[in-house]
Amino acid sequence: MSLLSPAEGWYYKKVSKDEKMWMIIALILCIMLFVWMVMWHVYGKQNPSSTTYKTSTVEFAELTEAFIKKNMVGVDNGIPVVRPNPNSDVFVMGEMWRWSPVLIMEVNQSYKLHISSKDVVHGLSIQPVNMNFQVYPSYDYLLEFKPTEPGEYKVICNEFCGIGHAGMIGKIVVIEKDEDLKKYGYENFKKAPVPIIAEEGREYSEAEKVIMGEQIYTLKGCGACHKTDGTSPIGPTWKGLYGKEEKVKVDGKPATVLVDEEYIRESILEPSKKITVGFEKTIMPKMPMKDDEIEYITAFIKSLNK
């Protein structure tokens, strides 16, 4: 009678035995589900943390950069590799479109991962262990991980973050002992290369500028889009770029520019002013950089022509 007014006395009709039985079972089940979640916090080993710090994208990028500088032991496909100490604070940043850094972790040791984004919302998804967390810009999510199995893990992005989303993939290596590093081609990654110490007022040689430029390339993640091997999956390759005539679009109109120091500076500070033809869909984000950093990067790009 669902299309007619209910029969008289419907409000006082007794609930049948079977329906009553089902409702009681259902209610018990529902309460059990709640109790289960609470108990898992007491006895379970997998609970999302409640600790979040408010930060800014700029601040978090600086923290990550400082962390990487301190703990970096090498580079893997343009992404810096770090080996933090167990129980220490680790910074992991998502940005369009890479995770940085690559982590070397020891099995059954805890690491306090601070996770945030430099631009849009990302999804941190560790595979194949299949653990997934949301990553926001300007929120620093503190998750204390303890890997339970050694092996190579990938960090994929599972929250849509723009056209390059499907290529956003990072790496975590979990080792039992130092010898395991060999399996991953990391046998030389036991300690960090000595960085060039910045000294006030000293003129650097061209070779030193190239080394510092390469460090910036790695730290800032230029390599996520700009390869140095001649391939151009997302952005134009840097190999043979310097001194080249490049077809660009200025306000949608085609033009040709010479890639020189001035053009490189402009492309870093105002990337959308001149857009290289063929890369209209993957426009570079703005990269706030200091003058000397731009100088080193330019030196590095020049060096790739040799």
Partner: peptide, 16 residues
């Protein structure tokens, strides 16, 4: 993942 164009991760630094 959902909403993901390419499960071969082409263009990425690694693959899975």
């Amino acid at each position: 993942p959902r909403r993901h164009w390419d499960s071969t991760f082409s263009g990425g630094p690694f693959t899975y």
